[in-house]
Computed example of a mutant assay.
Amino acid sequence: MRIVLASTSASRLSVLRSGGVEPVLAAPVGVDEDALLDSLSDASAAEKVAQLARAKAHAVAGKFPGEVVIGGDSMLLIEGQLQGKPHTPEVAIERWKNQRGKTAELLSGHCLIGPEGQEYVETASTTLRFASPSDADIAAYVATGEPLPCAGAFTLEAIGGWFIDNIDGDPSGVIGLSLPVVRRGLYSFGLDVHEFFSPELTRPAT
């Protein structure tokens, strides 16, 4: 049995690898995120993110029967508004100028589908406080391209870490995939985490 990651996110992959798991990668195809969000206009922010993760997991699950499939999605909740990936430098700069010095929530939706079709859905919430980078630092950071494909226009584990003053919650959830949430999902299926350890990633150093 394997873990299948229904995502193309390098950050989510790195979280699993750092946790000793080498997942199978499968891009979720056919998920119209904008249409799904439009259909959930009355849902809570946490539910919206969870349903995006659920759609991605189910888009992949049929191709991997008997495996554990994980779908994930992250969005930033700031001043009552949900924000996804900025995609363009102009949007990233605008968002950073707006969010610097403020507190926000990074919501990470998770959907695990078990080997017998079981489902576990949970949204992790981590509070973070943005630093107040200068305009020059914002421009230089955005020019690296790092924030463009990231919810909140930052990555905690890389260059963006310079501009995050504090987090209250699970760091792996901020990166994109909460290991505690995944563990709870596996336990709900009657599975142990160690069953998915990769010998190459967990072998003791010599």
Rank of each mutant, 00 (worst) to 15 (best):
122 E>R: 13
182 V>K: 09
191 L>E: 08
95 R>I: 04
38 D>P: 00
27 A>C: 02
11 S>H: 12
36 L>D: 09
125 S>E: 10
8 T>Q: 15
205 A>R: 14
48 K>Y: 02
39 S>Q: 08
64 F>M: 05
75 M>V: 06
93 I>Y: 03
87 H>F: 11
142 V>Y: 09
121 V>K: 07
91 V>Y: 01
20 G>E: 04
72 G>H: 04
201 L>E: 10
153 A>G: 08
58 H>E: 13
65 P>F: 08
153 A>I: 07
76 L>H: 02
10 A>G: 04
23 P>W: 01
11 S>P: 00
190 G>L: 10
98 N>H: 14
163 F>D: 08
139 A>N: 09
92 A>K: 11
18 S>F: 00
29 V>F: 01
170 D>L: 11
5 L>R: 10
60 V>E: 11
108 S>Q: 06
84 G>I: 02
152 G>V: 06
58 H>N: 03
2 R>Q: 13
78 I>Y: 03
99 Q>E: 02
166 N>A: 12
197 F>S: 09
66 G>E: 03
108 S>D: 00
187 Y>P: 00
128 L>S: 05
190 G>N: 10
164 I>Y: 03
200 E>K: 15
201 L>Q: 11
130 F>D: 03
198 S>F: 01
61 A>I: 04
15 V>S: 07
62 G>F: 03
88 T>S: 15
44 S>A: 14
171 P>N: 02
31 V>N: 09
187 Y>D: 14
110 H>M: 06
68 V>N: 10
65 P>R: 06
87 H>S: 14
187 Y>V: 13
168 D>W: 01
78 I>V: 10
68 V>T: 11
136 A>C: 00
127 T>G: 08
172 S>L: 05
165 D>K: 13
163 F>Q: 09
157 E>F: 00
118 Q>E: 15
168 D>Y: 01
19 G>E: 10
59 A>C: 07
39 S>H: 07
34 D>I: 11
93 I>E: 14
157 E>H: 00
125 S>P: 04
22 E>I: 02
30 G>Y: 05
202 T>M: 15
129 R>C: 10
16 L>P: 07
153 A>T: 04
184 R>F: 03
89 P>V: 09
32 D>N: 13
199 P>Q: 12
130 F>S: 05
29 V>E: 14
9 S>H: 05
180 P>N: 05
188 S>A: 12
14 S>F: 00
74 S>N: 02
131 A>Y: 01
142 V>E: 06
74 S>G: 03
17 R>L: 01
116 E>S: 14
6 A>K: 11
109 G>P: 04
87 H>K: 15
81 Q>P: 00
67 E>A: 12
95 R>A: 08
85 K>Y: 05
65 P>D: 10
88 T>V: 11
139 A>M: 09
157 E>W: 00
93 I>G: 08
124 A>E: 15
